[in-house]
Design a protein around this nucleic acid. Structure first.
Lengths: 196, 196, 196, 196
DNA sequence: TATGAATGAGATTTCATTCAT
DNA sequence: AATGAATGAAATCTCATTCAT
């Protein structure tokens, strides 16, 4: 095997994409490397030029899945908008991502736990960062009197991510969602209860 | 072979229980029938005295998983309490179930989609009933002026079930949760935004 | 287990019959002891009261299958009819047997070779007797000038049994056969040939 | 995995051949895929590179088994010889095939019924063609006054194929046969009868 | 870069058989 | 005379992975 193809190689990206599509469709454990190869129109063995293992493919998909979320959350924080606006932006972005990069979102959501703990480090890391950033956002909002201090910031994080995740099962059924309407109503439900 | 042992047979129940525990621990696709047999302290082949297939075991676990939820939702509706009370009861019951019957809840939540569509009928049925009942609850509350009519009942259902599901990933990490506190805060978040 | 039930016990006969039916339907190797038990409306384990093994069931069916054939051939010989009449009687009897005891005939025909050589003794014995008797019949007819001496009696036996067996595949397709017509025409072909 | 290797690939042909040999020896149901793999000197799982299932291997063997027979029958018909010659040619060819490709002939004869009806299409097709061609041959001979019109062509087909099949059980016992002698005597019996 | 051919380990499933009750 | 519960061995099949070409 030659060196691992660069992350930015077009073919490599196509391979990650194929893996995402297959995993999203049949779940990680329900997919075979043959499925991925078929989708790429290459032979099964050739996959190993791109990934050292099936697990590595999952990892690549999951990392790709969370990357944008963290980046987006960081940009929202940087903008220093009100908590109400921030929450709405987050919901909207997540819903839009589900439309735009459904496979990656779904795989990250459903299958990341299939990566064995020893190797889950980088994803866990990103996950932890994501939760921490969100928690900070709430803590800060509480500090600025925007948010009720009676609510545990940890619980707020869970509640909001739960709301976000709920859209997945929705998407599974409908395959199309009204981003604006749902973002608005979810924001309303979540915020009216929390704002002070 | 005898006829399939009765659903109320103690040993059969133990087999379903073992399947639930194993699936919850390693996910359906990640578990082997050998794992289940080992947990029951019988030989692998003997499992097939209880289940015709691994899939049938999953089905049994999932059905058991949702049954109680539907029953509880029905009982809540029968009590004709206010929507605020109803939501709190639901949240509390779900959280408590996660404590009491974590395995069944987790398997239902994470693995029911592993049952191929052709065989998912009975579970789907219960799921649909569950969602429908909850939607009716909201519609009725809106009719009685308890709930804001600006919110789409369908979205309310998703939001509440999303909130409920969010507890699972939590549980995965902590294994112990403060039922009262979370139920209270979740109710507050959800309700203050919805109540009229 | 108590003593083996008598060969003449009604229940034992029913068990042999069930085995014959199942084997005829799905072939020996394609049948399971459960299939037989189901047909008898007893549980799988209970079969072992009647047979020490699945193989013993096959043996019983096969023995029953050939018994009548030998007896009939003996009676035909005893009657000292012409070879032409003898052949016709044999064909007719075989065709009729296929109608009356199709299961036994089919199992004997298709599955007797599944009995391992060590245990095939009794059936082989009957088979050999059958062939020998038939060969003698032809030899005697040649001695009496009824039959062309240019034909090897051994080959004549094969040819006639081949003709007889051919009816099986027929039966498999049609399930009903015109005994008289086929016996007549087969006799004619065998005895006088097709050429005009 | 690559695409299924071509039908004309040498290794694929060797795999079919091994399957034929094993099935002929122990019957389809009595053989295991391990037996076939052993004969090819590959590991059991590797067989599945050539066949998608054990059944597909049987199908391949059976198709190969009947193909030549149909082709030969067609060539005999094309030669427009007398019916007497045609019958002799058929018998001779079948006996010779039994010598040359015994495994395929035996498997086709004994085990084709193990292919479930849904998948038996292509073999059935060939079988039907074979019978139809032979029937036409007889009908034509009757039209030309060569053959007694009192005999049902359908029955003639059965009789001749029965004669042909009878050689199999023979072969099972002897493993070597005198092609010329048997073909001659069988032709004689079929065409002119045994009576003096 | 890619493939054809295989492997090895494990998965699910089947089934004849046993035996205490 | 029959059954419920199990066993153990084998069978078919799947699949991630390897590697020479």
């Amino acid at each position: 095997m030659a060196d691992k193809p660069s992350k930015y190689d077009k073919r490599y990206l196509a391979a990650v994409d194929a893996a995402a599509a297959v995993f999203a469709d049949k779940s990680y454990h329900g997919s075979s490397t043959l499925d991925i190869a078929n989708r790429l129109d290459i032979k099964q063995g050739s996959l190993y030029y791109y990934f050292r293992s099936k697990e590595e493919a999952l990892e690549a998909v999951c990392l790709e899945g969370i990357k944008h979320q963290v980046e987006h959350l960081e940009s929202v924080i940087a903008e220093q908008v009100s908590i109400a606006e921030a929450v709405t932006m987050l919901l909207r972005y997540n819903l839009q991502s589900l439309m735009d990069r459904a496979d990656y979102m779904i795989v990250f959501n459903d299958d990341r736990q299939a990566i064995p703990l020893e190797r889950r480090g980088r994803i866990r890391e990103q996950s932890v960062i994501y939760h921490k950033l969100m928690e900070d956002l709430f803590v800060q909002a509480q500090g600025q009197g925007e948010l009720s201090t009676e609510l545990d910031p940890h619980i707020l994080v869970r509640a909001l991510t739960g709301l976000i995740s709920s859209v997945f099962s929705w998407y599974h059924q409908k395959n199309e969602i009204d981003v604006d309407k749902i973002a608005d109503q979810y924001s309303h439900i979540f915020l009216s209860g929390c704002l002070r």
